[in-house]
Amino acid sequence: MSDNVIDARGLLKLYGGARVVDAIDLSIRRGEIFGLLGPNGAGKTTTILMMLGLTEISGGSVNVLGFNPVRQPLEVKRRVGYLPDAVGFYDNLSARENLIYTARLLDIPRRETEARIMEALRSVDLADVADKRVATYSRGMRQRLGIAEIVMKKAEVAILDEPTSGLDPHATFELLEMIRRLKRGGVAVLLSSHLLDRVQSVCDRVALFNQGKIALMGTVVELANKVLGAGHPLLIEATGQDVAGTLGSIAGVRQVVPAGEGAWRVTADHDVRAEVAQRIVSAGGALTKLSDLQPSLEEVYTRYFQEARHAA
């Protein structure tokens, strides 16, 4: 068996003639966190539903853990955990009762059920409210309960649809931490989102969706290189004589752009931080800030869609 847990080839979905998902190729590797990014309506959820066998596939093929979701949906659904967008639970039941129902559907042996549920609830910090009705839960708690369901299921792959949408920053932080924990447990995670900065921090690789197609795919740095141009962006704040000129004379520096009073943005072919510090100090200047600018997915995304619009 290959190292890919999900393999999609030419996956196609038509809705009344419109190509909602337009022949995409996608592979998710074992143990990675993969982000599906893109504006609403770009085909992310439809792609996810096709992988789970919850909606018809119009063309192409998809293979999940060696099973075909069209012909073997039960096998796929036994091994894949799914957290839908704005997940719902039975409000009149407690968290524990909700999970018991899922455990019965999964055919988990009865004597294991209780232990597995409590372990799962503990892993998402819901153990002390396990017997409260879900109606009293906040949105963040519901999402965590959804993660608990995946943990209880001992899924090999977790598919999370917009897991952080509508959560406050703290709840988002907690949820992302739980997603990382899933990964540490050896679970491959596929998550979709339109909230980029949050996704950036957890994803190993991302795919950028646009109108049913995958526009870009790779690590965040790879995408940044492709869209924003290669190089290491730096932010420098310094005082002294002709800082810009000093910076520009460093080998490997391609661009120096003023970024406000006494600040410059430098793009270089490789990491030139050490040299920058040395040259400024030896030129008699004072270096007050030297930071490596992580390429931001937000920037990639905005730039990419600007260009896509211009091209159109």
């Binding site: 919850l54 096998e75 839908p84 719902g88 899922t102 055919d107």
Partner: peptide, 8 residues
């Protein structure tokens, strides 16, 4: 969708 993502 959550229930249908279980094996049934």
């Amino acid at each position: 969708s959550r229930v249908l993502s279980q094996p049934l």
